[in-house]
Design a protein around this nucleic acid. Structure first.
Length: 340
DNA sequence: AAACTGATCTGGCAGCACAT
DNA sequence: ATGTGCTGCCAGATCAGTTT
């Protein structure tokens, strides 16, 4: 059932039927209702290819994601994706996730742009130096970055104050009497990791504590990397009394490593995990002290609004750069320093 | 003025006539 | 045989009208 057949069955022109379905005011309400009813009973669905052709829009937003085993399992990201989807749905805009190899990522952007499959992009997990951002800016394609880069004053983004979040974590531990605070972090090429790392250093500096390089460990964005990093940390000659992990994936592994060794969190060692432990892991019963960002679902919905505004091009850039503050969610994995 | 419509446009591509 | 250029098609949206 296409527009032509639908209009023929109603004895109306294609123009009137199209305008009736698309909310134009110069169609009588009676006709509109008749058209809507017929479209429903006859199962009319606009042909998206023809629609894109006529409108010059795809009604779709793309996320190109270099999917790796660990990424697929990042529940926080999937929660954001779910929120974006919800936020775009009322406008009948689809979210297309394109899987790309790390090498071929820019090619994927290129294809999606030139085949006009999407109206804009959301660029996730930004890097400090991010060629995707440079590429999209140069190509003049609408996009919203989920996270900033080293230089982020001239494009739209949504982000959390990562540095402030780490400062919150350090301050809490310092108040509990800790001075030996280790830090497990993702690769500092990731912008979030870079900023959280800077926040850790600032928090330590403000407390008058010199961070020990022995207790600064890099782990991959995966549970097993977090597990291995915690094992490494526990093999040091002098143990820290507290650990901050800068992401939830490594956080799950780090916490599991402590449980496996019978180390009691909150008593023997204090642990704070950035983004907490997602509810789908086997550790879900535990109250992990966390730096949290307002629900990921809500984050996604905000991003959906932002990317639509970017595409509509009706907002000054300053309105399209949104920085939200993280919060500390107390749990039972931190406590007074045992060496006091 | 309100309600409706024919003609035209969108980008890519197949099919065709004609030229080399 | 291969290349070139033109036409029409797809299914909608919309301009510039016409009819009621």
């Amino acid at each position: 059932m296409d527009l032509k057949a639908l209009s023929a069955s109603l004895n109306l022109s294609m123009t009137t039927v199209s305008r009736a379905l698309n909310g134009y005011s110069d169609v009588s309400e009676k006709t509109r209702q008749r058209v809507i009813e017929a479209a429903r009973t006859l199962g009319y669905q606009p042909n998206s290819v023809a629609r894109n052709l006529a409108l010059g829009r795809a009604n779709a937003i793309g996320i190109v994601y270099p999917l790796e085993a660990g990424d697929v399992a990042d529940p926080r990201f999937l929660e954001v994706v779910s929120g974006i989807t919800e936020g775009l749905a009322p406008a009948n805009i689809d979210l297309l996730i394109a899987s790309a190899s790390h090498k071929g990522e820019l090619d994927s952007y290129d294809r999606m742009i030139h085949s006009r499959r999407v109206d804009g992009f959301i660029v996730a997990r930004t890097l400090v130096q991010d060629e995707r951002i440079d590429y999209l800016r140069q190509a003049g394609v609408p996009f919203l970055a989920y996270g900033r880069t080293a230089k982020s004053d001239d494009y739209p983004w949504f982000d959390f104050d990562n540095e402030a979040g780490s400062v919150l974590a350090v301050e809490r531990l310092v108040r509990l009497g800790h001075r030996h605070i280790a830090y497990i972090h993702a690769s500092l090429h990731y912008n979030f990791a870079h900023q959280r790392h800077a926040g850790y250093l600032r928090g330590m500096h403000d407390a008058g504590i010199a961070p020990q390089t022995d207790w600064l460990l890099q782990a991959g964005l995966a549970r097993c990397s977090g597990y291995a990093a915690m094992e490494q940390l526990l093999a040091r000659p002098v143990l820290p009394t507290a650990v901050i992990v800068d992401n939830n994936l490594a956080g799950v592994g780090a916490v599991q490593a402590l449980i496996d060794r019978g180390i009691v969190m909150g008593r023997d060692i204090s642990v704070i995990v950035y983004d907490g432990i997602p509810p789908d892991t086997l550790l879900m019963g535990r109250q992990i002290t966390s730096i949290i960002q307002p629900t990921q679902q809500r984050t996604g919905e905000r991003m959906a609004t932002l990317i639509q505004q970017v595409i509509a091009n009706a907002m000054p850039l300053s309105e399209l750069q949104m920085l939200c503050q993280p919060e500390l969610l107390p749990g039972d994995t931190d406590g007074p320093c045992p060496r006091h």
